[in-house]
Design a protein around this nucleic acid. Structure first.
Lengths: 131, 131
DNA sequence: CTATGTGCAAAGTGTTTGCAAATTT
DNA sequence: AAATTTGCAAACACTTTGCACATAG
């Protein structure tokens, strides 16, 4: 299990990720972290993100295109806007999905849920009405 | 909207996809379709899959790594096995997730749900107990 | 006949990796 | 000092695209 040491790079990646709710990808995180640690490389960003995901400190979202990362790990639903590509959090109580699914499928072992909706974010839904 | 014409290639891609429940990726579909239409190219497979997804005949699953495709479009949950990478269907009644989420988030427009669990498939869960 | 789809190969993204140098513990 | 992590650049895996030819309608 990699990334045991607390380096400046690692701290900066974690702080940048905690500072936003925009579900950024590695390239965006890299640009932000460079403002604090100019020498950092994109490779290090990827390695750090991998480690954080494996440790459960960060969630990886596969939504098509680049992987997005989310430091808010409490189970919640996402909306992927099919018009602008934005990913936002959705208000929705997840009704014990993991427990229910586990009970109905005893042969498998469920560790995590990802609930993702496709549709239009508030801005794009609004623009659709106007335009 | 592309792919209005029913070509041999398109028919073969659709048939191959309907014949499996393994949620294959483009490379696998390409190999299978080549058995029926040897001249087909990987580019055509990608273009055809894109079209089928846009038409709603096929669902694209983004699970990390290559995009996987599913011709079974009735809403259902998936399990991505973190040990072997397999993607299987899960027994689980989706309790009107789309309607509930839409009601709680009136400003956005929800078109589709993707419910994905991470964990161990039956085989890998079993092997874990033995090994 | 004409518009659309195909095959090919080259180019584009996003991500991973080997290695020597730097850093953490 | 020892072990881990970094930066760099090259390699990779997956997907998209331009174009001349083929084909469905």
């Amino acid at each position: 299990m990699p990334m045991r040491r607390m380096t400046r790079q690692r701290r900066a990646v974690m702080e940048v990720l905690k500072s936003t709710r925009s579900h950024p990808d590695a390239a965006w995180i890299y640009q932000e972290v460079k403002k604090r640690v100019p020498s950092i490389s994109l490779g290090t960003v990827y390695r750090t993100l991998d480690a954080l995901v494996k440790e459960g400190k960060v969630i990886a979202l596969h939504t098509g295109g680049a992987t997005r990362y989310d430091a808010f790990t409490h189970p919640h639903a996402h909306l992927v806007c099919t018009a602008c590509g934005r990913v936002e959090d959705l208000e929705l109580e997840l009704p014990h999905l993991l427990e229910k699914a586990q009970a109905q499928n005893p042969a498998v072992r469920l560790d995590a849920v990802r609930l993702t909706f496709e549709g239009l974010c508030a801005d794009c839904a609004q623009n659709r009405l106007e335009g």
